[in-house]
Structure formats: structure tokens, C-alpha cells
């Protein structure tokens, strides 16, 4: 039971980072990306490769993962600068689908469908952090750092600029804001952090394959942000806890066969997303928008 809870808490920390980083795009900048699992995956694969071939030090692997994910996020920044609305959603979907295929097919980099196995236990500066408890502390520390950085940035001028261009791009421009630079920057920062989440994920599972980085995962991440409350600091975390606890809660219900839990879970978060958009579009934590 304890082992189960530690595992759950670790996953909550990892997905908490991922959802918080996605919230930078969706909630603050109004960039509706459905390709976040792609960058989660890039982080995981890079960390796994670094751990397998260079060094099992978490700091090295996570830094490499974050930098590569941040750099490759320019593929997402490009359409974000050129198009918006439906077009950008479509572009990010296209990107996610291409990435899934590449993850499954680029055997030399990703191990193909079989994935990368035997990722060594994480170490930090020579210390072993592989035990579940130690790794949970590491994951929570990463989450805390992410939240602190995001909170500081979003309460500062960067956050204000993003919200300004989300609320009115033309007015933001009229006050000297370089919309292209800001959008590029937020995409890079968001993907940098999800790269770290990917690195934690790779060490935690000791195995990564394409299954974890598909369109479904992107949708789950989006659901976490939106159900919790986009554009708030704690919303994504609430969403992560809600969605990750769901399978556990469902397994206590005797009338659901164990094999169907995944399906029931999918139904619940799908229906929840729809219901929230109808009755409370700002999410569980979000402020009500008020009448215009």
C-alpha cells in the first residue's frame, strides 16, 4: 500500500511538472498545444539515452532533456507565430502525430516500438537516489522548483505580457510587445520544463516507449490543465491529482471489471471535460469569468 502511494505521489509530481508547463502555453499565453506529450517524450528519450550512454547522473540527463526539448520546441513555435485558433490546434495535432510515428520508427534513437530498456537507477553527484522514497523526494523537489519558477515568472512582467497578448494581441503590440519573441520564449520555457518531467519519468519507469507519448497522453495532459483550471498556478496540480487518483478510486468500485478501468476512466475524463466546459469553463480552481 505504502509502495503504491509512493509510486502514485511520484507520478503526481512528474505529471504536475508536465501539466504546469503546459499551462504556461494554454493558460497564460493562449497557445492551445496538443503536442505536449511529444516534448515529454523527447525529454524522456534524451534522458534515457544520456543515462544509458553518458552518465546516470540525473542532473546531467535532466539538463540535456530540458535543453533538447526546449530547442526542438521551435517546431511548435513556428506554427504558433504564423497561425492561430483552429489552425494552430491542427498544426500541433499534426506535429504530435508525426512525432508518435518517429518515436515508433526511429529505432536507433528510441528503440522503436520496443522502446529503451534498462535505464540505470538515478544518481545525483554520486549519491544513489534510486530507492522509491529518495526518488519521490527528487521528483517533489523538481516540482517545487518548477512551481516556484513558474509562479515568479507569471507574477512578473513575462506573465503579464503573456496574458496581455492572450487577452488582446493587437493591443499588446500597440504597447510595444514583440508577440513573436514572447510566443517563442514561452513555448521554449514550457517545453524546457516538460523535458525535465520526461527525464524524471524515464528514470522512474526505467523503461520508455512510444505508448507513453502519444496523442492520448497529450489529451490527458490537456485534460489535467483544463479540468484543474487553466491560467491558475494550482489548477493544473489539482487536475493531475484528480485524474491520476481516478483509476485508484475506480478500482474500489466492485461492479467495474478490472480490465475495463482504463475505458471507464477515459469515459469519465472525457465527460468531465465536456461538462466543465458547459458549466464551469474556467476549471475546478479557476475564477469565474464574470459577465462581460
Amino acid at each position: 500500500m505504502i509502495a503504491y502511494l509512493v509510486n502514485l505521489a511520484t507520478l503526481i509530481a512528474i505529471f504536475g511538472i508536465a501539466a504546469t508547463s503546459l499551462n504556461l502555453l494554454i493558460g497564460y499565453a493562449g497557445i492551445f498545444s496538443i503536442a505536449h506529450a511529444m516534448f515529454f517524450g523527447i525529454g524522456a528519450y534524451v534522458a534515457a539515452q544520456v543515462a544509458l550512454t553518458v552518465s546516470p547522473d540525473f542532473l546531467v540527463a535532466a539538463l540535456a532533456a530540458a535543453v533538447v526539448a526546449g530547442a526542438l520546441s521551435l517546431c511548435l513555435a513556428l506554427p504558433a507565430l504564423r497561425v492561430r485558433g483552429e489552425y494552430f490546434v491542427a498544426a500541433s495535432l499534426g506535429l504530435q502525430m508525426m512525432a508518435s510515428t518517429i518515436f515508433a520508427e526511429a529505432h536507433s534513437l528510441t528503440g522503436g516500438v520496443g522502446g529503451l530498456v534498462g535505464i540505470p537507477p538515478a544518481r545525483i553527484l554520486g549519491f544513489d537516489v534510486a530507492s522509491p522514497d529518495a526518488f519521490l523526494v527528487l521528483a517533489l523537489a523538481c516540482l517545487a522548483v518548477t512551481l516556484a519558477v513558474v509562479r515568479t515568472l507569471m507574477r512578473g512582467s513575462f506573465g503579464r505580457s503573456l496574458m496581455a497578448l492572450r487577452d488582446s494581441e493587437s493591443a499588446a503590440e500597440a504597447f510595444g510587445k514583440d508577440v513573436r519573441a514572447l510566443k517563442t520564449l514561452v513555448v521554449v520555457v514550457g517545453c524546457f520544463f516538460v523535458g525535465i518531467a520526461g527525464a524524471l519519468f524515464a528514470f522512474h519507469m526505467a523503461f520508455v516507449n512510444v505508448e507513453s507519448f502519444t496523442l492520448e497522453q497529450s489529451v490527458v495532459l490537456m485534460a489535467m490543465v483544463i479540468i484543474g483550471g487553466a491560467g491558475t498556478l494550482t489548477g493544473p496540480l489539482v487536475g493531475v491529482i484528480a485524474l491520476l487518483s481516478l483509476p485508484a478510486a475506480l478500482s474500489f468500485l466492485p461492479f467495474i471489471p478490472a480490465t475495463e478501468i482504463g475505458t471507464v476512466q477515459q469515459f469519465i475524463y472525457g465527460a468531465l471535460m465536456t461538462a466543465l466546459m458547459i458549466f464551469r469553463p474556467s476549471g475546478i480552481v479557476g475564477l469565474s469569468r464574470g459577465a462581460r
Binding site: 490546434v89 477515459q266 469515459f267 475524463y269 472525457g270 468531465l272 471535460m273 466546459m277
Partner: peptide, 16 residues
């Protein structure tokens, strides 16, 4: 985006 997410959610629920 609100409409999009609602639609997306309904699609997922129906699929499930």
C-alpha cells in the same frame, strides 16, 4: 477553445 475542448471530451467519452 472552450467549444473545442467540450467537443474533444465528448468524442473521447463516446469512444470509451
Amino acid at each position: 477553445f472552450t467549444v473545442f475542448v467540450a467537443s474533444f471530451g465528448a468524442g473521447i467519452a463516446m469512444q470509451a
